[in-house]
Every structure is written in structure tokens, then in C-alpha cells.
Design a protein around this nucleic acid. Structure first.
Lengths: 335, 335
DNA sequence: CTGAAAGCGCTAACAC
DNA sequence: GTGTTAGCGCTTTCAG
């Protein structure tokens, strides 16, 4: 059963209250009593039960984190950032992984409420009516990461500006003389990655009076394989191969590069490629990938800070747009 | 404050017990009562407080995970595996990150005890007397990952056989004709990575009557930069460049490759390189890295299963050695 | 400075 | 089938 405060009290010949006081570093305890209690604690190896404490206090020091996947550099970096700043502030992290199953998110939200977490960091993909309803009901500070929910939800969010990033990097391609640019992205249920990045791409093409060629647009999942398959489709379906490809994520870009190599094309000599995200792999592949850097660790840290402020009823940034920058490497050539 | 079981009881015009029964899917509740209670719960959005429940039951369904870093493919994959199998079995994960600070481990252990986690998955690096003492005192099922603690600790562990893996991959180098093989590793306070892998390397050289050349041995941290620096040192200090390098981890190997390239050497034409770990980056770099595959996701899953058995007082594998295999890619040439 | 007592929200006998 | 009761281990008034 484990030893309790009551037994410590008995052994130290004081009351529970006194033991509680020394545990919680309260003043108003005589040195003598404190010493005795500490000694007993030391001897017995007593470790207080925070369930009881949290119940009584009606608050925990646990932060819930909901993410769709963990073994990916985006999320694990963000979690590292979260973990850093939460640890510094005395909070622990309860991790829940929806494994890309959006339906599960609602359950995870409820689970975290059951645990009475003090706040939630929610890596959102899509946000349905049911999400909104649950989020509002649970009455826990939440910060949304990765999706701009500022006009549908009354919670702070921290995002990268996907539309602008896509514009920038596609603009970079245009500036390098590319006029025929293909697109490999993900399904559009994902607002940030699926829709915004595609729209940024389209905006730049339209702006520059370049043709948007449907058979050079491909959308599927997030995996490297999707990137590979996308590139393959574009190769097979194109009358004329695009001179450049904008991939919505680095991972996709890497898959595409692999495909091009397999098919005997050279990157960037035959086809230039860019991505978004600056995955840790990107500088290591050949050619090193030109991309847009998103600092996920920093995003995690910032989001944590916002959540902390929220919890402490301080002023809160409603929408933090992380800035991003183009990282020029080797996968684009002038044309 | 949140709504409680008591209020649900009142609204549904039944007792707390009945509400508790329907929440916990107990039989012995009339359909009528159940329906009424469920309706009230639905209407109010009531979500039970698991702190109270866990306190009363004297058990939680959360598992503590202690790791030294999260944004690395080794750990995030392991956590993915853990998360998968724990989720399937109705457990949640409390993550604690020591950020490579070994001294912190003891505190994290205590913290998890406070939270009364049901079991702990502990990614160990070194295991000191204090560790042992704490581990034994907290009286919680623990499974150790990454270090063979079978003769000092009475807890199950799951490991990769680092000695044998190192032997195998260095043997592979020897089989390809290499006689002058350098080593880039990590400090030896880390038993598995620092000591065992080095010993495996030395064993093979000795066995084959090859010279162990101290200026071609370098030890430092785990980062890519360490690999780079290590390679640089070896280049600078060697009378004659080794024909092959065994790096204790893929990350180190990748750093070393980068250095070689920067210095104008070709891999594997000038120097062959191998690593251990099969990081997800390894097949993507140029040249693709020949290495030993460790399946960390699987290791996480297996360790979880062992922990679960331990918790349920079923029989437990005391020491699970995950097998590993050489993945032949492009970074080694015959000499 | 210290102890007694009440109670956090819930479960689990035990009666009815 | 259902309600009553007694805590789980702790904090927190409130007296003394």
C-alpha cells in the first residue's frame, strides 16, 4: 500500500498537519519538528501521493499534449521544446498520440479532462464541430498548434504561415526562372499543409501568369512513399516534365528526389525541387534540399509559454505566427 | 470547480453509487436508472475526476517513461512503440525528459512515484548506486531499456546486443579487406554505446591481429558535430588515413561523412564508413550508410509488453536481447 | 507553532 | 437494484 503521511506523523510524533507543512516547505514549523519529520521521511523513503494532493488542491501540475504521431522530426522537436519549458516551470507532460486517427482526438481531449490536466497543447489537423464543442466544454486552457483556428475557436494558436511560406518558396523558384512548376502535396482535409500551402503555390503561379497544370498536381499522404508516388505520376502523366517541383513537405520532397534518381533524372539539373519544413534530414541528402525552415522546437516552447500565461490568467497572444526563412541549398538551379 | 458525481446523482434522482455504477459499466443497474443517468451526463457534459478514482482505487493507469532526449529517431521511435502498445492496453503515458542530465534521473523516478504511475520504462545510460537504491525503494515495476542491467538490478531489461553488433559490423569491414580501421564513439560512462561497442571493435581487431591505433580512436558526445570533429581529429592525427571508420552510431557516422566530403575525400572510395542504429536518415544520405539495424519501435513495444506482464504479475522475460542485422548499403568498398 | 476536523470526488462493501 | 457509509491520502481552516 505504501507508506502515508499518517504513519510519518506517528513515527515523528507530530500531527499530519505538521508533516504536511514540512513537505510543502511551509514556515510556521519549529526547527525541531521539521528536523524530526525530515529524518523520518529520509529513513522510510516516504514519497507523498500526489493524487491525494492534487485532488484536495483541485489542481494538477500536468500538461496534456495531443499529437498525431511522435516519431517524426516535426513533432519530436516540438515536444522537446514543450518538455523544456514545461519542466522549467514545474509541469509534467502527459502525452497522447492519436496515431493520425482524427476521430480519436475527441477521446483524448476527454481523457485529459479526466486527468484534470492543467492545460492542453493540441496539435490539430482538422477542427470539426465536435472538436469545437468538446474544446469549449472541458473548460481547460488549450493552445492549438499547427492550424490557424483564430476565427473559429477562442483559443490561442501558434502556427507557421503556410500560405506565405509556400508563396515565398514558389516565388523563389519563379525567381530562378522556372515557369513550369509541379506540386506534390497532401489531402486537403489538413488546412495548413493541405490547403494553405497549395493555395500559396497557386497564388504565385497565377500572379505570374503561369499555367496551373492539373496533371502536374498530386495529393496524397504525408509519407516519403507518397512523395515518390506523386513524382512517378507526374513523370508518367506529363507531356513535358516540369522544370521544378514544389513539395508541400520536405519528406515528400525527399521521396520525389528518390523517384527522380531512380528514373534516371538528375536533381537539380533536370528537375529542381523544394520543400517546406527543414527536416533534419534535408541538409544530409544529396542534393541538399532547399526548403523553408520551420523551427518546431521554438514553436513548442512558445506555445508552452502562451499556455503557461493562459493558465496563470496573464495576457495571452491570441495568434502567434512563427516566422520562417528560406534555406538555400542545392536542389534548385537557374533555368 | 467542475461538476461532480454528486450533482449528477441529484439531477438524475439517484444515489452517487448508482452513478458510479453506470460510469463504470457495472451491471446491477436497472435500464431505467442507467438511461436517466446517461442522459444527465450527456446534458451536463460531466467527465469524472480520475484523481479521485485513482486515489480511492489506489492505482492509476499511467505509465512513466524516462528518457534522455526526445527529438532523436531512436527515442521517438521507441516512444511511438510504447505509446502504441500502452494505448492498446488502456494506459497513458507520462513523459519525462532528463535532457541528458543523468543526475536528474533520480528526481524523475521520484516524481513518477509521487504520481503513483503503474509502471516505469526507463531508458538508462549509466546506473549508479543511487539509481539502484531509488529503483528498489519506489516499489514500482520498472523495465530498463538500452542497458544490460541484468547482473546489478532485479528488473527486466531490453537491449540490443551492442558488443555483438559492433563485432558484426567491424567483422564486415574486415571481411571487405580493411586492415586499418578507425573508431569514433562516445564517452564510456555510457555502458552500451560507449563501452560495449568499443569493446566489440577491439575484439575483432585483436582477433584478426590488426593493430589498434590510438590516434585513430576518438570519443566524445552523441551529436553529428562530434562525429565531424572526431573525423577531423583522425584526419589530422593520422600518419596514414585509415581505410575504414567504425562509428558507434549512425549520427556519428553521418557527421564523419560530412567531414570527409568537406575535406575532399570520397566515401567509400577513400574511406569506408559504417555505423550502428539504422537511423531513418541513413538510407537517405549519399552514400547510403551501411549499418546495423536496431528496431527501436519494436524494442519499445516489447519493453511495454514486458512491463505489462510485470504489472499483471505474469511471467516476465528478465532480459530480452533484440536482434539486429547488418544493412548493406553503399558506404563500404572492398579493398 | 501545532493539532483536530472537515472534506476534495470517487469507489466499494454492506445493508436494505 | 439501490442507497448509506466509510474511507483513499492529503491540505487547509480554525482553535488553542
Amino acid at each position: 500500500m505504501g507508506i502515508t503521511i499518517k504513519e510519518i506523523a506517528k513515527l515523528a510524533d507530530v500531527s499530519k498537519s505538521t508533516v504536511s507543512r514540512v513537505i510543502n516547505d511551509s514556515e510556521h514549523v519549529s526547527d525541531e519538528a521539521r528536523k524530526k519529520v525530515q529524518q523520518v521521511i529520509e529513513e522510510t523513503g516516504y514519497i507523498p501521493n500526489s493524487l491525494a494532493k492534487d485532488l484536495q488542491r483541485n489542481k494538477t501540475n500536468t500538461i496534456g499534449v495531443i499529437l498525431p504521431k511522435i516519431n517524426t522530426s516535426t513533432f519530436s522537436s516540438a515536444v522537446e521544446g514543450i518538455s523544456d519549458t514545461m519542466h522549467e516551470n514545474g509541469y509534467n507532460i502527459l502525452l497522447t498520440n492519436t496515431r493520425l486517427n482524427t476521430k480519436e482526438e475527441i477521446n483524448h481531449l476527454k481523457l485529459l479532462k479526466e486527468k484534470r490536466v492543467r492545460g492542453i497543447l493540441f496539435f490539430a489537423t482538422e477542427v470539426t464541430k465536435e472538436h469545437i464543442e468538446t474544446l469549449e466544454r472541458i473548460d481547460i486552457p488549450v493552445v492549438i498548434l499547427g492550424q490557424d483556428t483564430s476565427d473559429i475557436l477562442d483559443f490561442p494558436c501558434v502556427i507557421h504561415d503556410d500560405f506565405v511560406s509556400a508563396q515565398n518558396i514558389v516565388g523563389y523558384l519563379v525567381a530562378h526562372g522556372h515557369k513550369n512548376i509541379g506540386y506534390i502535396g497532401v489531402e486537403e482535409y489538413d488546412i495548413a499543409v493541405g490547403q494553405l500551402r497549395k493555395k500559396g503555390y497557386e497564388a504565385v503561379l497565377t500572379e505570374n501568369n503561369l499555367e496551373i497544370n492539373e496533371e502536374q498536381i498530386y495529393k496524397d499522404g504525408f509519407s516519403m512513399e507518397s512523395g515518390y508516388k506523386g513524382m512517378l505520376e507526374i513523370i508518367n502523366n506529363s507531356q513535358k516534365l516540369p522544370t521544378a517541383i514544389f513539395a508541400a513537405t520536405d519528406r515528400l520532397a525527399i521521396g520525389a528526389i528518390k523517384c527522380l534518381k531512380d528514373k534516371g533524372y538528375q536533381v537539380p539539373e533536370d528537375v529542381s525541387i523544394v520543400g517546406i519544413g527543414d527536416s533534419d534530414i534535408s541538409p544530409l541528402i544529396t542534393p541538399e534540399l532547399t526548403t523553408v525552415r520551420y523551427d518546431h522546437l521554438q514553436a513548442g516552447a512558445k506555445a508552452s509559454q502562451i499556455l503557461l500565461n493562459y493558465i496563470n490568467k496573464q495576457e495571452v497572444t491570441e495568434k502567434l505566427v512563427m516566422n520562417s526563412q528560406i534555406i538555400e541549398r542545392e536542389s534548385v538551379k537557374n533555368v
